[in-house]
């Protein structure tokens, strides 16, 4: 069986992180409060998972001010996009194996 499972990414084993990355794959950039509304999670939960993704180098952060309120936007990095695509390939391979 020549299927490669090394592509499976432990970082995306966490559901919140997988969902954040899905949003950032579908959109060029997304801000903190919109992410929170879309994922329906608490501030703390979201922040800590964003931190992990940032540490991995999968997302980049852009801080700015809109009407004097802090506005933080997140973007996928090239590394993050590649990792996500690899992870999808790994899931695909898992499915293929099960239908053999």
């Amino acid at each position: 069986m020549g299927l490669d499972f090394s592509l499976y990414d432990k970082v995306f084993e966490n559901r919140i992180r997988l969902q954040i990355m899905s949003v950032l794959m579908a959109n060029d950039s997304y801000d903190f409060s919109s992410l929170k509304e879309t994922l329906e999670v608490t501030d703390g939960n979201l922040a800590s998972n964003l931190k992990t993704l940032e540490k991995e180098g999968y997302i980049s952060i852009e801080k700015s001010f809109v009407d004097r309120k802090p506005n933080t936007r997140y973007k996928r990095t090239e590394k993050g996009a590649k990792a996500f695509e690899n992870h999808l390939t790994a899931l695909e391979n898992l499915i293929k194996r099960q239908y053999k």
Binding site: R15, L18, Q19, S22, V23, M25, A26, N27, Y30, S34, T38, L39, L88, L91, L94, I95, Q98
Partner: peptide, 22 residues
């Protein structure tokens, strides 16, 4: 990971991509 997990996993990805961009 069994089949049920996989389907759920892909469901999360799909729904997030749709919900956030449409």
């Amino acid at each position: 990971m069994d089949q049920q997990d996989l389907i759920k996993e892909i469901g999360h990805i799909r729904s997030m991509m749709e919900k956030s961009s449409k």
